[in-house]
């Protein structure tokens, strides 16, 4: 049986900002069609890893960065439209700021319906709640219409039920997905493969079926008691692995 092609490959990748190491010696291969959840305490390097991955497949990826990077002054519609800018000519895109293009308007209104944003579509996003802003940013990623979804905490600001629905929708729209999450149960329920990061290194990379929420908790529990300086010590040895 032939394996699907490799989309992302990192071999011993390290990264640091100034003299502060962020990622160290990352080995990771992700193939087409895989659904990968990234877990780990905050500051573990999940966002940096996602940025690295994005660099490898920028043309095929729909990105959801943690800050969402919305433009406050523009309406939800315009913010979502930014995702599709590539598909429109420059003049058409500029005209769209003055008067929404009919085609884009139809598409984005449909998208807003699925995201529950139909009432907020023409408001500027600075007037929206955190959850609504998050859905606008998801809309921008969806409107990219790419086969790969790279998401950094895309459902952190919505209630659990809505999070589950949004995640299902995102996964249904994208063939391949790498998503960082802080909700362990969501990860176990929706993804086949789970990668746990700690202090910039991968400490666990295995199928979701082999993990439980309790097992995952242990990665976070250690963090609470770990001293601040542990970033420099290289704690791999004491971490449970599967």
């Amino acid at each position: 049986m032939t394996q699907p092609p490799v989309l992302f490959r990192l071999q011993g990748q390290s990264l640091s900002y100034g003299d502060r190491p962020v990622l160290r010696d990352i080995h990771l291969t992700i193939r087409q069609g895989e659904r990968v959840a990234l877990l780990g305490p905050s500051g573990a390097g999940k966002s940096s890893l996602l940025t690295l991955l994005y660099g490898q497949q920028a043309a095929l990826s729909a990105l959801y960065p943690q800050s969402a990077g919305l433009v406050d002054l523009l309406s939800a519609y315009q913010n979502i439209f930014v995702g599709g800018l590539e598909r429109f000519g420059t003049l058409a895109a500029l005209w769209n700021l003055v008067r929404p293009l009919p085609q884009a308007r139809r598409e984005i209104e449909a998208l807003a319906q699925t995201l529950g944003l139909e009432d907020q579509l023409w408001q500027s996003v600075d007037r929206l709640s955190g959850g609504q802003r998050q859905r606008v940013a998801i809309g921008r990623a969806l409107y990219r219409r790419q086969p790969i979804f790279l998401g950094d905490e895309p459902v952190s600001a919505v209630d659990p039920l809505q999070a589950q629905l949004l995640l299902e929708h995102l996964l249904a729209q994208h063939e391949t997905a790498v998503v960082s999450l802080h909700n362990r149960q969501l990860a176990l329920d929706n993804f086949q493969r789970i990668v746990v990061l700690r202090d910039g290194a991968i400490c666990c990379d295995c199928p979701a079926s082999e993990l439980s929420e309790q097992a995952l908790d242990s990665f976070y529990a250690e963090e609470l008691s770990a001293p601040e300086a542990s970033a420099d010590v290289g704690p791999q040895g004491m971490i449970p692995s599967c």
Binding site: T51, D72, L85
Partner: peptide, 19 residues
């Protein structure tokens, strides 16, 4: 800033100027 932000004229119109 996000890595997939538009560039050039479109960045000017959709991002920098509104911000």
């Amino acid at each position: 800033t996000r890595p997939d932000d538009p560039r050039g004229l479109l960045r000017y119109a959709y991002l920098e100027t509104p911000r």
